[in-house]
Design a protein around this nucleic acid. Sequence first.
DNA 1: TCCCTGCATCGATGGATATCGATCCAACGA
DNA 2: TCGTTGGATCGATATCCATCGATGCAGGGA
Lengths: 127, 127
Amino acid sequence: MSNTRPVELPLLPSGDTDQRDTVPCCPPLTSGELSRADAERMAVMFKALGDPVRLRLFSKIAAHPGGEACVCDIQDVGVSQPTVSHHLKKLREAGLLTSERRGTWVYYAVAPSVVAAMAAMLDLRDA
Amino acid sequence: MSNTRPVELPLLPSGDTDQRDTVPCCPPLTSGELSRADAERMAVMFKALGDPVRLRLFSKIAAHPGGEACVCDIQDVGVSQPTVSHHLKKLREAGLLTSERRGTWVYYAVAPSVVAAMAAMLDLRDA
DNA sequence: TCCCTGCATCGATGGATATCGATCCAACGA
DNA sequence: TCGTTGGATCGATATCCATCGATGCAGGGA
């Protein structure tokens, strides 16, 4: 089961890293029609933040210096350890977080470009 | 049942309209801890955009001149009429849309301040 | 007064998901 | 090699929710 791959969302002008034909993803919501595929991709990201527990986990990580934190430092959100793990996985699959193991501990970090992309979608300019 | 009241989300510097002690709602997600109540409020808004159909409906409305549209102009999103109505209600309850009847038709409009607030939450600045 | 049209609401249903305890696996230390 | 600790995965369950057809209701003709 390889459904752990994060949502496709390049859009960082990093370079030539396997730049498939994924559209620059997610134009501002005012840009007329929205393809079914784009809507699906964007919905995954918004849905990831559409849960109070995930919001608090994400907030704790974002508030940590460097936008990264050890799981052991953010586990106190009122639910069991398996549930925390489940929510962190959801956030990672949505592309909002990345994870890395360092020895005994696992660190989760905010993916700034993806979050910025979400903010850009909500930029209605003047409207 | 009066559970149709939109989410509490003043934060617009409009004036003195019954300004209860609702905190200015929803600081940037990097601002340390997030209270359970705030997380709940914010989650409702993100969850509202966490569905492809709702995202397309919202997009269509936002793309219309003036950020408002008649239901009859946006119904073509691939689901039944009751389902469209259900999703529009969800978006309205989340505070992202307002609705107004004009004769035979009902118009939905984007609530710019609320959308801007969501964008502000995602502003991680430098981090 | 009917009838038609535009939306909202109701009730049912199937699928998604948040949550948990139990268990497994990786890293580390004794 | 064993035991301990951090974290992920599994399997079960209860709740939520997206969707539909049927129905109700308001506005506007005829």
